[in-house]
């Protein structure tokens, strides 16, 4: 019986101690933010949506290679010897057409590896975080500056050029073989 009343007494007292804390905090400023209306400041270097400044991209594949989840897709076409694609803002010469630079933001794990390895700082994380979309395909961001048909043309051209080169090489080889044979026959 005594234990029972002691328990009741202690419970009441400890609740009152807690309530005193709560009461005191009634007069302190609130710490909650009404999110869609108010937004908190993000610090410098925050890791949210990825962005690629494609003019600076030299197509080195470093970001695609280090990505732990393989969410960066790059296709490049080598520039012809007489073509000058200029330089990136950091001074690195651009020698490739980046015909495709897609990032699947649904796969991205925001680990920041791609931005740390980029030699020209062209891929970086912005402070944009409200990126929900209605369609899954809209989560794939395309950054290449080439129109699809032109990109396709570049790819076809490169393939043709390569095929021509290979054919020329094969022909040259055959010629050399024939010459050799002729020599042996002599």
């Amino acid at each position: 019986m005594r234990t029972y009343f002691r328990n009741v007494y202690r419970s009441l007292i400890t609740i009152l101690i807690g309530m005193r804390q709560t009461w005191r905090h009634l007069f302190t400023p609130s710490v909650t933010l009404q999110y869609p209306h108010e937004k908190w400041d993000l610090p410098v270097g925050t890791r949210q949506q990825l962005f690629v400044n494609i003019d600076d991209c030299i197509g080195c594949y470093k970001c695609a290679r280090i990505c732990p989840v393989d969410c960066i897709y790059i296709d490049t076409v080598k520039a012809k010897p007489d073509e000058d694609l200029g330089k990136a803002s950091t001074g690195n010469p651009i020698r490739q057409h980046v015909v495709r630079f897609d990032i699947d933001m649904f796969k991205c794990c925001y680990c920041n590896f791609c931005t740390t390895v980029c030699p020209t700082d062209c891929i970086y994380m912005t402070d944009k975080y409200e990126t929900s979309v209605y369609d899954r395909s809209n989560g794939i961001y395309h950054f290449s500056k080439y129109a699809p048909d032109y990109a396709a043309k570049l790819i076809v051209d490169e393939k043709e050029a390569e095929a021509a080169k290979a054919a020329a090489r094969a022909a040259a080889k055959e010629k050399a073989m024939a010459a050799k044979k002729a020599k042996v026959a002599e």
Partner: peptide
């Protein structure tokens, strides 16, 4: 469309990282 929409919302100074 998506690229352009995204570009417009970029901060003015662009690259914001240490």
């Amino acid at each position: 469309h998506f690229v352009f929409q995204f570009e417009r919302t970029l901060p003015a100074n662009g690259n914001a990282k240490p």
